[in-house]
Amino acid sequence: MKKTAISRRSLLASALGLTLAGTIWSGLAHAQDFKMGLLVTGSVAEEGWNRIAYEALKRVEKELGAKISYVELQQNPASFEKAFRDYASQGYQVILGHGFEFQDSAQTVAEEYPDTVFLISSSNVHDGKVIGLNTDSSQPFYLMGAIAAKMGKAAGLIGGMEIPPIKEALEGFVNGAKDASADFKVSQVYLGNFTDATAAKEAAINMIHGGADFVVPDADAAGLGTIQAVREAGPEISTFSIFSDQTEIAPKNILGTYIADYGQGVVRIVKGIKEGTVPTSNVDFGLKDTDVVKFSYNDKAAHPVSEDVRKYVEDVRAKIIAGEIKTRHRQ
């Protein structure tokens, strides 16, 4: 996050310029720059959800030469609309609101700024230039559930808060496990926040004592507590690395890594927008988008996933991509 003083100075100079431009020239002066803004509800410094968006923003800067900026708003729905408006009024062409909760405010602000494209993460909205970008985590979690059911006795899942991206991911895991082995037991715990790594660790320890040999977190920074618990429990307990590669933290226990290369997907969409093609529907990234949703194995684990399980996984992966297996919304 730290830059050289020179670049920060110039960033500030341009920011001051923009403030003035906003009042005097109504943003005309900077019309030629391509700019993208990002709104997140927490810290981009931590591993997990918000960091993914930050990485995506950096990719857009690097690969498309865009000017970028981001703002951490805490969980404050009242501030979303203003932040959208701040960016839109400064002539930002694309603004990414990272979470379904940004949807309402984006739709309101979009009416006033018809030239700006509003991307909303974890949403399936499509309303003019307000476009949902959903990463369907239930698909890779389905694969993890299948592996757990094929290799283990019982699994435990630790979610941060009960919000759609997490609920759906856990649902995918349960479905994957049940389809692979009908009476495989999966238990779930929600922490109620994304900060309490201590609770995440204790929840994992409890699940392990209760007989789970797979414990998988989906709780951002707090999830590190779960990985820690699994590592301390020894090589018989397994887990997966979620969203980013944490294999080095517990190399014996992490059987595979689900990486959501959201940056790749965002760059693809934003590139289109820069060249003049705004998506005509909401975007759903899944296993079909092999450049975005990646699932890979860790061969150095104490008990790496065996060949026949991998074959089963490849089989269901193909069926998910073909639309033959539904990983979420089953009822």
Binding site: S43, A45, E46, N193, T195, D196, A197, T198, A199, A200, K201, A221, A222, L224, G225, Q228
Partner: peptide
């Protein structure tokens, strides 16, 4: 204790 004897990471607001 939270960062050195339980979890092994600092998380903002982790005292919860």
């Amino acid at each position: 204790y939270l960062t050195l004897a339980h979890a092994n990471q600092f998380v903002e607001g982790m005292t919860s």
